[in-house]
């Protein structure tokens, strides 16, 4: 079906609700249009409020956590502590004040940030509440699960230690 036939068949609203068509601009049109877009974008940026800026940073962080948890390979540097530190940086808060916001000890926060302690379920829920649900608890939880999954797959020390506690192992083989 040609575009002309589509235009005959559907209203403009229906078309806009179904398509973005390929549109060719001449070099001259493109240059002018890019310039106009640049100017308009600068105006939009001038009107951005600190609140919108913060929301945007928190959403950005949420998407980064989601995509890392769901699609990316495990990366030792992108830990729960790393992303929590990013959250903290976005808020421009000191550890002490943030710990107070969450009603936890500053030492506990520091241990979590430095990967010396695993965050509790309660803390994850508190983080959701703190961000006004902008980053849901499930997002933090999946991030934590990714770390746990990696640990259980690769921790040979724990295997060696636990092996001492297991008797009558099944002798299965193909």
């Amino acid at each position: 079906m040609k575009t002309k036939k589509l235009i005959d068949k559907y209203t403009a609203t229906e078309l806009a609700d179904s398509f973005v068509f390929r549109t060719k601009l001449t070099d001259k049109e493109k240059k002018e249009s890019d310039m106009q877009l640049k100017e308009m974008r600068a105006k939009v940026q001038q009107g951005i409020t600190p609140k919108q800026q913060l929301l945007s940073r928190i959403m950005q962080l949420k998407y980064q956590i989601e995509d890392y948890s769901n699609n990316a390979p495990y990366d030792i540097n992108r830990s729960f502590g790393f992303f929590l530190r990013e959250y903290l940086k976005s808020l421009n808060k000191k550890n002490k004040d943030f710990a107070s916001d969450l009603d936890i000890n500053e030492t506990e926060l520091s241990q979590i940030l430095n990967k010396h302690r695993t965050p509790s379920e309660k803390l994850i829920i508190r983080l959701e509440i703190h961000s006004n649900k902008a980053i849901p608890a499930i997002t933090w939880f999946r991030l934590l699960e990714k770390e746990r999954e990696h640990q259980i797959l690769t921790d040979n020390v724990i295997r060696k230690n636990e092996s001492k506690h297991v008797k009558n192992r099944l002798q299965l083989s193909i």
Partner: peptide
């Protein structure tokens, strides 16, 4: 979407 002549766009509040 915001009008920039030949192009239209989302940025800032409308994008959020």
């Amino acid at each position: 979407m915001l009008d920039a002549g030949k192009q239209i766009f989302l940025e800032g509040l409308p994008l959020l």
